[in-house]
Design a protein around this nucleic acid. Structure first.
Lengths: 373, 373
DNA sequence: AAAACGAATGCAAACGTTTGCATAATTTTT
DNA sequence: AAAAATTATGCAAACGTTTGCATTCGTTTT
């Protein structure tokens, strides 16, 4: 055995001249990259009449393999269009180089920006993203969770669905935590346990926004409140509420209207709000403010002189609203980047869990800049 | 051998009573779901002192396994938190139940809606999505393509990057096509070959938009032209051009301004356009029109009386622009759904390639509804 | 000339699961 | 009572790749 299997011509040492000719010959006869089954290391080994391990080492530039043999095999592999099967590697190494990302929705600037941020960091590190949209459904969240675990993703980054909050059913979450599987909460808080979380300080952002309206002279500040039960909504309401208290303004229930996150949903809410004559509106996000502004314009109420508006998220179109919309930027992209970096730190052995809270930034535009100042 | 390994008590036949006790015992001693290594079928086999194949069949409810043994094993597996390792299955069955999705960008309504559409169809079918954002870079597109192939995704759905068009380097595409790997072009055309493609008829949409402006009395219709080289830009320009020709209006080069897809980029472009006194503007997308409208408003030019505007995409905020923006809807979500369905048809043996072109829908709003009519 | 060494390669196990076939024990049929 | 059928289970290979160890030459050292 040993060399006996190799049909190399014996130049000096074991120069694989014959093999080179052989490979070219094969290439012409059967253009293997057109075959339906992908080429494996075993296939290449068969052509060269050697062991798969030799091919594996050659392709990985292992110094134990003769330098010329290595080159020949590498050249043949690229020419034939060989592509390593990562699945087998994942199985062997117990890491799939893939992250699971579970999001309640995708069709908003905030979520898709987070994903872009994650990709920016993780692509260079060789990671792929499995993105799952739960549509705020608890059942889907569960199903996706199981599937990702079954797929042995290296970690799961999750922004909890509204239903999971509503129903308070987090057994699937607890279950995942009890495994070794790294779990990072993005954008929406889980609960105050010592977990990995990356969020923006919605409370502070809401406080800033409300404070600004007060400083602009508003005394009857309405709030377009997001869906109940969602932490984002609650945090922003809390910031609004606490700011009013700090400035000794009353919290008037008639100035709170509930909306979903869409501009559409804000239309009716704003109409009822206007009956109570607010002089400022703080919206749970920018879309909602677009809806409110449309209603206000149609009633010929002036912005910001009669009613000042402030939104949240600072979507790219905010500055193109009429008038340009003041907003709180929560650096969506950066949430994604920080999440990705937290993950990388974790697999590099960082033990302690980390809570990262990004500072929101308030951006003043015409919708709240009263001319009297 | 045979039964000899099984330590079942001999009730009548082989009722695994002893095993049941054994499993509960084990559960109490070592809560396996807290172990760092996930539990495998082999682990369970060891507990029950039987072959892995028996466990596998039991978990899959194979009738050859004794019904009581089956139940016992299933119960134990769920209690212990066993999760099937899909990687090994993918390797064995040569299908990963995962799709690769390559997109030039993510932070726009159009792209993220497409993804949502795909998920809607593919989640029930048990598929996961690997989403890759190229940021319009050719190099990244290549890298992602290789990675997805290495991961043995069952198909790749791709919306080509601008650079791939610019550089005309599609060897990576051709390479993928030459494999058996199903490749579906989403949203952006490849070239006229007989491939699988799902797009909207941008040409027709642009034609409709332009025709509408003409019917509203516009004679000097400007165009905010998308980035050169991108098919979407070209198709929309072509529709605009051909419509002008049909109505015997001249194509005036001074009324064409180039923009990227952002509102920001439209500001300067619109300023220069206004020097040439257009009475209508057709924008390559809605964002661009938001930019244009801001400029126009600031110059105290009336919309639509002095200048009528029409956009493209019908983003959710279009109807909340001031004034509400007329637009061409290209049913982003449906592109995703159709792509997903095309894929499902393909793996179910549909041979012929298919080109699906979705009808755009024109939506009239105030931005183009001249009051003289 | 024998022994030690170095270079190049092969062997086999491992990752987790499935599945056709073989095997053993029990029951039914002749 | 022997043969056949039925039931329940085990064996081993397969998917594609890596890797520690063994093997086989050829070369250098004693």
């Amino acid at each position: 055995m040993g060399f006996s299997n190799l049909k190399f011509s014996q130049g000096k040492g074991n120069i694989p001249i014959l093999s080179l000719k052989y490979s070219i010959f094969e290439l012409i006869i059967t253009p293997a990259y057109k075959m339906s089954q992908p080429i494996s290391i075993k296939d290449i080994a068969r052509k060269f009449k050697c062991a798969p391990s030799t091919i594996s080492r050659a392709l990985n530039d292992h110094p134990a393999i003769n330098i010329e043999t290595r080159k020949t095999i590498q050249e043949y592999a690229t020419r034939i269009g060989y592509q390593k099967n990562t699945l087998s590697l994942s199985l062997l190494n117990k890491q799939s180089k893939t992250l699971g990302v579970i999001l309640p929705t995708m069709a908003h600037f905030h979520e898709s920006s987070m994903v872009e941020g994650m990709e920016k960091i993780l692509q260079p590190a060789g990671y792929l993203l499995n993105i799952c949209v739960t549509n705020e459904s608890h059942a889907l969240e569960r199903a996706y969770m199981d599937r990702l675990v079954a797929n042995r993703v290296d970690a799961i980054c999750i922004s909890l669905s509204q239903e999971t909050y509503d129903k308070k059913r987090h057994d699937h979450i607890d279950h995942a935590i009890s495994r070794a599987l790294p779990l990072i909460f993005m954008d929406r808080f889980y609960h105050a346990q010592n977990l990995d979380q990356v969020i923006t300080d919605d409370y502070q952002g809401a406080f800033l926004a409300t404070e600004h309206l007060i400083q602009m002279g508003c005394r009857r500040i309405a709030h377009l409140h997001g869906p109940k039960g969602i932490t984002v909504s609650q945090q922003r309401f809390q910031g609004y509420q606490d700011c009013l208290r700090k400035y000794e303004l009353p919290l008037l229930p008639e100035l709170i209207a509930y909306v979903s996150f869409s501009a559409e949903s804000a239309v009716e809410a704003t109409i009822t709000l206007l009956d109570h004559h607010p002089d400022g509106i703080f919206g749970v996000n920018d879309e909602v403010c677009f809806g409110a502004m449309k209603v206000i314009r149609e009633k010929n109420i002036r912005i910001p002189d009669d009613i000042a508006l402030v939104g949240f998220d600072d979507i790219p179109l905010a500055q193109f609203a009429y008038p340009p919309l003041s907003s709180v930027s929560r650096q969506s992209r950066k949430i994604g980047e920080e999440t990705a970096q937290l993950f990388l730190a974790k697999i590099n052995g960082q033990q302690e869990n980390k809570q990262i809270s990004l500072e929101p930034q308030f951006i003043v535009r015409e919708s709240s800049r009263k001319r009297i100042f």
